[in-house]
Design a protein around this nucleic acid. Structure first.
Lengths: 338, 338
DNA sequence: ATAGTCCTTTGCAGCGCTGCAATCGCATCT
DNA sequence: AGATGCGATTGCAGCGCTGCAAAGGACTAT
């Protein structure tokens, strides 16, 4: 049994298919009488537009793809959670893809031949991809990049001011009287741009307060996971001169660090104050709750979708811009106590 | 500038469009000579098939949608992480949707008129949806349901044997000598089927060991999050007779419970043993690592996709079946120590 | 040499919808 | 009455691809 088509509806309603199309799309001027007739026919036949055909006819798919490194990282999951409704509101469906941070996979996605025309645009949050890889992409694909990149002028970039945010975070630790402050999460290599910006903020805050930086307190980690935080914190505690505060490059790292501290019988924040980054939901409910830098995820999602829609709608190239979403410092129990 | 089409390639290669199509799709018999000619033309023009047109022509979109209640729940994120590659291997793209557990949203998705023909099938992990809601859905939509439901015969259901798994989990606690065992996560109302199965296993394990069940040790929670576990555990510790072990209905709940225990200066598992459910990544790296029931997520994903593909490919109704993926008990530090 | 066989290649038509521009019908104006 | 204007409706053609069945070509068998 065939699905009912526009033509079927038109026949029943006694109008042309084109008019039915107009009704369905709310186009143009249609008399109330005609509209009603058509709508009755639609209801009677249970007509549902064939999205595929519509897409082909007007050359767009109405879908955008959001590419993240890991779906199971709370930050990305929460971001996605914000992007999906924003995109839907703009009339787009969201396809999700994950790359596992694999550079090959990441560049195959932005590169030519991707997946044909299944999506009209892409919101991409690269991880293992360096700046160069982004430049060899298909220039026709509307692209908005999230995170710590800089636009080469052919795509938009949305992020928060990481250096400023990190400076605030560390400044907060200094303000509450801490003097031996560690940093967990540095990644001093090409694909570690995000981490490096945070390290820069770490230094800036020290400089602003006239404090020296103990380089040995900057601990590198391969990723920003709980286990990384837990391990790094354990290493810090093994030292003769453990820190009295730690700036963690993600809330997951902070969570791992806190875990280690509690397991060692230390108190947070009394013995060691901890501040994280990302403001994931877990951090709001743990014990202690985690002080953090909260990027405005709703704004990031909204801005990203808005820009992407703009790009997709334009027939001429849109110059790439740098866009900043707001962030704020949220002091919680892990720095200011109960 | 138009994208190059099949016709352009055909012209350049000096063959018919149909032959180019055959080459692109690896169809039928094509001479090596012809194939090579065509492939050269494709490369020269940078031709990419228009997926939209292909979809329209053969009446399928090549996409399936996976609907989960929350994207930011690790269990769902990990499941999705398994489903996406499995679907891709079968030639399908994955659309992701989340319902926030909202019954209205959930039923609008499975109901008629959903999103037209944008997806060929759906893998659905309902939460707030009761059995009845599932039955009023569009019968033409191939559907595979995950979790703790039972099929009404028009769709497939994939899950693990929750009662057996829960029985094993609690049996393990009994085996290591615990006698006052609590359960955190019960949901004694219509949409709490998953929870109820676990409670049933909890009772079964007690019965098998000839132990009485202390009803007051069965704690209900609204969701399966960390905060729920933390709160419930705190309540248990306030009692005059706290438990010596807890069966948590998810690893997140377990994680929250452990957090509370450590914060109270108690030791896990020495003072209180904890076992979770889901085997999420966090549980493998925390401290202590969390003993858990590990559903074979890879198998769930594979089976779900396989069945869905079968349904989508069949023109006649496929009877719905109940499918079970394997699970296993993984004892870790939170029950057997370091 | 002719018929028969088998494999490769082709042409046609159409998936269901929409952009475009033409057309129709009606009311208003001179 | 005829001309003019304007909004509502329509027809055409085509988006780019594939299913189908038939045509073509090369080769073998008689």
């Amino acid at each position: 049994m065939r699905e009912t088509t526009l033509r079927d509806v038109a026949e029943l309603a006694g109008v042309s298919p084109r008019t039915v199309s107009n009704v369905v799309n709310g186009y143009a001027k249609v008399t109330d009488a005609t509209r009603e007739k058509v709508e009755r026919a639609i209801a009677q036949l249970g007509y549902r537009p064939n999205v595929l055909a519509r897409n082909l006819a007007n050359g767009r798919s109405g879908q955008i793809v959001v590419v993240v490194p890991y779906l199971d990282t709370p930050y990305f999951a929460e971001l996605l959670q914000a992007i999906i409704p924003a995109a839907r509101e703009a009339g787009y469906n969201v396809l999700v893809d994950q790359t596992d941070g694999d550079p090959a996979h990441e560049s195959s996605l932005v590169g030519r031949g991707a997946r044909g025309l299944l999506f009209d645009g892409m919101i991409f949050s690269p991880l293992g991809l360096s700046q160069d890889d982004l430049s060899v992409r298909d220039p026709a694909l509307p692209l908005v990049v999230l995170g710590e990149r800089t636009s080469d002028g052919t795509f938009d970039h949305v992020g928060i001011d990481d250096v400023a945010a990190s400076t605030e975070a560390v400044g907060h630790l200094i303000e509450i009287g801490r003097r031996r402050i560690a940093a967990i999460g540095d990644q001093p290599y090409p694909t570690g741009e995000a981490a490096q910006l945070r390290t820069r903020g770490f230094r800036a805050a020290h400089a602003a307060a006239g404090l020296p930086v103990d380089e040995s307190l900057i601990i590198g980690t391969a990723r920003f996971n709980r286990i990384d935080g837990a391990t790094a914190m354990a290493a810090l505690l093994d030292r003769a001169d453990p820190p009295d505060a730690v700036f963690c490059y993600s809330d997951l790292v902070a969570s791992g660090a806190i875990h280690t501290l509690l397991a060692h019988g230390l108190r947070v924040p009394e013995d060691v104050a901890i501040i994280g980054y990302d403001d994931i939901e877990d951090g709001r409910y743990g014990r202690p709750t985690i002080s953090t830098i909260s990027p405005d995820k709703g704004a990031i999602a909204r801005i990203a979708v808005e820009r992407l829609v703009l790009r997709m709608g334009s027939s001429t190239p849109v110059p790439g811009v740098e866009l900043r979403a707001a962030h704020r410092l949220i002091p919680r129990q892990s720095t200011i106590g109960f």
